[in-house]
Design a protein around this nucleic acid. Sequence first.
DNA 1: CATTTGTTTTGAGTGAATCAAAACAAATGC
DNA 2: GCATTTGTTTTGATTCACTCAAAACAAATG
Lengths: 160, 160
Amino acid sequence: MTTIDSSQDHAGRRLAAADAELLADSIRSAGLKVTAPRLAVLRALTVMPHSNAEALFGAVHADLPGTSLQAVYGVLASFGTAGLVRKIEPAGSPALFERRVGDNHHHIVCTRCSVVHDVDCAVGHAPCLTPADALGFDVRAAEVIYWGLCAQCQLDTSNP
Amino acid sequence: MTTIDSSQDHAGRRLAAADAELLADSIRSAGLKVTAPRLAVLRALTVMPHSNAEALFGAVHADLPGTSLQAVYGVLASFGTAGLVRKIEPAGSPALFERRVGDNHHHIVCTRCSVVHDVDCAVGHAPCLTPADALGFDVRAAEVIYWGLCAQCQLDTSNP
DNA sequence: CATTTGTTTTGAGTGAATCAAAACAAATGC
DNA sequence: GCATTTGTTTTGATTCACTCAAAACAAATG
């Protein structure tokens, strides 16, 4: 009974359908079967990047009430290995997910409100891939997390 | 009954005692009370940096069988807030601890065997503290984790 | 040595994630 | 179209790393 296109109103129908097709295509071309939970997770991730599994479950569950939290974990795991999403794990936070993959961008996290933004590399191209001394390691990736106060929290803490 | 100096043999005694005094001093000068579990954790951390709480508990428990895992967590938490140890949390790993604090060095983790080494900053002084665009954030810290294969694992995987 | 303050033990509890088996749905071939 | 195969999702239990709280205890201070 659940249709894959979750739009109910006439106005948004055409757009949502096209959107669903795009989402479906990226799932298919990653070599995965297209299912309603997968579409719902991918759509949620488009609207709210840097979300954790719980938050995505909330969003998905609103559209598709039958979906379980474990299904969301399963979808995210398959998306992860298929290269469709990237998982980031800032210290002290549950894992967050985003659709922006393939470029090596980094993240900046607010120590007060935990908001996360993408940031491009500090220095030129594939910047941080060169430690001063790699100690014999074959370095494959560099992950940078900046910590600080976001603009809003700077205001909030200076005017308490 | 448990003495703070855990050395039992004559040969190592003088050195171990001096060592214990050094450890005790750093704990005291961080404003914390000196206790047997704290000395044991700090000593273990000196011998095996980049250890997790469980591993430290193992080492501590060998010297000081009465010590609980929760005590180790408590010691690590107090050391952390006192600035005596640094906690690192690589993705997919329990938290690791090290005594090297105050410099902003980074880490390189083997994706195969999980060994961790310290690496100095990629570029000059306080290097990674400048993202391309900080998006209004007041950036306070940058954490870099390099991922790759350690020298040993490169050998192991090319000669299977 | 008595007191105060802070630490450790003991035991329970939490959040985030994983695992396994059975039920189910999408893609494929007939 | 329908049956089969393959892969996904549900359900339910379980694990791991860690946190919390109260009582017992030990270090520092006077």
